[in-house]
Amino acid sequence: MDEDEANTLQRTLEKKAWERGIAGMLMLRCGLRSEETTTVTPDDVERGKDGESWLLNVEGKNTKGGEKTTRKAWLPDDVEKGLFNFQRERDISDDEPYLPYAPRSIQNWITNESGTGAADVLAEDEQEPDEWEHVSSHDCRRHWAHLHLVEKKVPVRVMMAIGGWSSYSAIEPYLTVPTEKSILEEMRAVQN
């Protein structure tokens, strides 16, 4: 999924329901797993030590196995604002999850057997490519990781910390081939 497709998926989620848009932002823009979106609360949002940035405390999968671990995920300013507005409008208490749903519900918002998930709707659209029929909720996290690791060149160790990967072998599958655009830009920059 490229950035345009991620934006299309996000708009499709938002059209269906505000909750779905929030889930999309957390997965596509913060790299949360579907099950992690169901646990974050307003209490989990915090200012970075620089006084300007936002972080999100996320309890999630331990890629080494065992008990869940907590990490500080990067929270873009516009996502923080979206969460704040959602909390205020829905009267969500500070210790209440933004999305009090089962992880499977979040996954179904992306794709499901009844064909009502955002990717399912896009797959039925004749104007959209056929690849939408293969998109799952994990592709949101995969897109986020690829975009930052390969296209934006965020250091692997930074991505491991904010994405919750505890080993290089766990993050390695996200280090996929760069896009042609990225290849051409990089090679033009070093051309004599």
Rank of each mutant, 00 (worst) to 15 (best):
N85S: 11
E36G: 00
K81R: 11
L122Y: 09
V135R: 14
E80N: 08
S137C: 10
P76E: 04
D95Y: 09
R47K: 15
R88Q: 10
I22P: 02
E36Y: 00
I106C: 11
L99F: 11
L83V: 03
L56K: 13
A73K: 07
Q107P: 00
G31L: 07
L56V: 12
K152L: 14
G31D: 06
P129T: 15
W109A: 08
D95L: 05
N62S: 14
V79R: 09
M159R: 04
P100V: 02
N62D: 13
V45P: 00
G117D: 05
T39P: 00
D130G: 14
E80M: 10
D139R: 13
V154D: 01
L83M: 03
W54K: 05
E96N: 01
D125Y: 06
L26M: 15
K49C: 05
T63P: 03
E133G: 03
R90N: 12
M159A: 06
E124A: 15
I106G: 11
L28N: 10
N62I: 14
K152W: 13
E80H: 14
G66S: 05
L32G: 05
V150P: 01
G82F: 03
T116M: 02
W109N: 04
N85H: 14
N85I: 15
T38G: 03
W165K: 11
N112L: 03
D94R: 14
K49V: 10
C140P: 06
E96W: 00
K64N: 12
E126A: 15
A102E: 06
T63W: 02
P129N: 07
A102S: 08
A118T: 08
D91R: 14
E35P: 00
V150F: 00
T70V: 15
L75I: 12
R71M: 04
S137V: 05
R90D: 01
D125V: 05
W165E: 12
V58M: 02
L26K: 01
E67Y: 04
T116F: 03
L147W: 12
P103D: 02
H143I: 02
E126N: 10
E46S: 12
D130H: 04
D95R: 12
T111G: 11
G163R: 14
